[in-house]
Design a protein around this nucleic acid. Structure first.
Length: 231
DNA sequence: GCATTAACCACAG
DNA sequence: CTGTGGTTAATGC
């Protein structure tokens, strides 16, 4: 965790401002600047922890993160999320204490914004507030979608969907390296590492993907789409 | 019954 | 940490 606050007025110059932050005027950006600290994390470092007091809104400016919650029986990976995005608006605004943890999957940089500053923007700048709501709504829709998929699709369908998600949404490439080991990947899909192993090598043998450890190349996207839609 | 799906276990690189 | 094979339980023709 290295502080990188050598730049003065860094928020003004920031090229990856959130849609919300783009609605802030000059003075507000000054305020943001004063209440904002940028931190970098290495893979597997904890960005914030479930149960801890949360007094910051976190904006991911680069990197990849997994959101994890302690369930009744074991920990559950809720989702994998890519910068740029807000992290944990619900967990910071909705309660004093974090309801889930965020863990970096690769080198990640995050801006910690004081929650009172953030709340002030919401109260005083309706364009900012609207963008925040939009973001929250999109997230909720995504989660609903993921929820039905997990509950109603069989494993092959869930796997196909997840591979398509990594290719289309996260890496924007049909060739990528899984950011998770088999256990975590299984956890994300609500399954077991054994099944994940078996299905991946099945897809590999059928020429749908080419598999080499964590390196995956999607060879037949239509087939994956078909598997996702049919079972 | 019989087939399919997926979890759990054991064992091996 | 992974991959495979066997066993088992649940569910659906």
């Amino acid at each position: 965790m290295n502080k990188t606050n050598e730049n003065i007025k860094k928020c003004h110059k920031c090229l990856i401002k959130s849609n919300a932050a783009n609605k802030l005027n000059f003075t507000e950006l000054d305020e943001l600047d004063e209440s904002c600290v940028q931190v970098t994390f290495k893979a597997s470092e904890i960005i914030f922890k479930q149960g801890a007091l949360s007094s910051n809104i976190i904006y991911l400016s680069s990197g990849l993160v997994k959101i994890v919650i302690d369930g009744p029986n074991r920990e559950q990976i809720l989702k994998v999320i890519k910068a740029p995005c807000y992290l944990g608006i619900p967990t910071t605004v909705g309660d004093k204490i974090n309801h889930y943890s965020a863990i970096a999957l690769e080198k990640t940089t995050a801006c910690f914004v004081d929650v009172s500053t953030f709340k002030n923007f919401i109260k005083l700048n309706s364009d900012f507030a609207y963008e925040v709501i939009l973001d929250l709504c999109k997230n909720e829709l995504d989660q609903f979608q993921r929820c039905v998929n997990l509950v109603q699709l069989q494993m092959h369908g869930r796997m196909a969907k997840q591979l398509l998600f990594f290719a289309n949404e996260i890496y924007c490439s049909d060739e990528f390296e899984l950011p998770l080991n088999r256990n975590d990947f299984a956890n994300l899909l609500c399954s077991s590492r054994e099944i994940v192993s078996k299905i991946l090598s099945e897809f590999n043998n059928e020429g749908i993907i080419s598999l080499n450890g964590k390196k995956i190349k999607i060879l037949d996207k239509e087939k994956l789409q078909f598997i996702y839609q049919n079972g």
